[in-house]
């Protein structure tokens, strides 16, 4: 095999090479030896553009996003489909995600290993998209709690059959900046929404009670399919005191009503 003495290149050149590698090649390089791990850690801290996130859905893994494209390295317990591409529109922008899957009978253990390694390499992982349509929600939440209790942003995709698990999630994991809660949430569901998250988006907010809404201290709230027919944007913006209004703290509020 034709080889090149990589570590004898100037440091700035090594940095350049890293900036052209895929994140997964960098991770594999970090796993080659203690020395390469040290170098990767040093270089990676100078490249701030990597946006790392945990990926939990049917498969578990990690990924990184760059603008509207994302690349994910996930463990699966289903055979086949080693590679896949998923495209979708988010906020009128087309985003595309590339997946590389690795088969294992023990995807949770494999996930823990890769999470540990990435956390060691990159520091705390800022972002957590969590699709609760899996069998290990509580185990994953328990594990994440021991490793990293706080995430900057989180998108939770709720499974109707596992409502209790969403509350378990909010009890154990703190989301500081952006929280998105997606898809059909039963109307009578009592969700322990975190009150202090900076920006909150709820796709289907029929479950949300007025009392709960008023308790929120978020700076921005976007509610889809709300039941609050009596709300008017102007009403909120005018900070009418009759509402007793913690929402005064809220710089923007959008509610999209059921038609």
């Amino acid at each position: 095999m034709n080889s090149i003495p990589f570590l004898r290149l100037p440091f700035l050149v090594i940095q350049e090479v890293f900036s052209m590698m895929s994140l997964f090649d960098i991770i594999r390089l970090a796993r080659a030896s203690k020395r390469t791990k040290r170098i990767v850690k040093t270089v990676i801290n100078t490249i701030k553009e990597y946006h790392i996130e945990v990926y939990i859905a049917d498969d578990y893994g990690i990924g990184f996003k760059n603008g509207t494209s994302g690349r994910y390295y996930v463990y699966t317990s289903k055979r086949g489909h080693e590679y896949s591409t998923v495209g979708k529109f988010i906020d009128h922008e087309f985003s595309i995600s590339f997946f590389k899957r690795k088969f294992t009978y023990h995807k949770l253990d494999a996930f823990k290993k890769i999470f540990n390694f990435c956390q060691d390499l990159f520091g705390d992982i800022p972002s957590l998209p969590l699709d609760m349509n899996n069998d290990d929600n509580k185990l994953i939440i328990d594990y994440l709690k021991t490793k990293q209790e706080n995430f900057d942003s989180c998108e939770v995709y709720i499974n109707k059959q596992k409502n209790d698990e969403i509350n378990y999630f909010f009890e154990n994991i703190k989301v500081a900046k952006n929280l998105g809660i997606y898809y059909d949430i039963p109307e009578n569901f009592e969700m322990n929404l975190p009150e202090n998250v900076e920006k909150l988006f709820v796709y289907d907010s029929k479950f949300l009670q007025l009392e709960q809404l008023l308790a929120l201290k978020s700076k921005q709230i976007v509610l889809n399919s709300t039941n609050f027919f009596f709300f008017q944007k102007t009403y909120i913006y005018s900070n009418d005191c009759s509402l007793d209004i913690p929402l005064k703290l809220c710089s923007s509020f959008y509610a999209y009503f059921n038609s």
Binding site: S3, I4, L7, D25, R28, A32, S33
Partner: peptide
């Protein structure tokens, strides 16, 4: 040089990049 690393395992990378163990 970056392309040489594509899809390689850590052991293969040690050989391609002459990385000491």
């Amino acid at each position: 040089v970056a392309n040489m690393a594509q899809g390689k395992t850590p052991a293969q990378l040690r050989r391609v990049y002459l990385l000491p163990s």
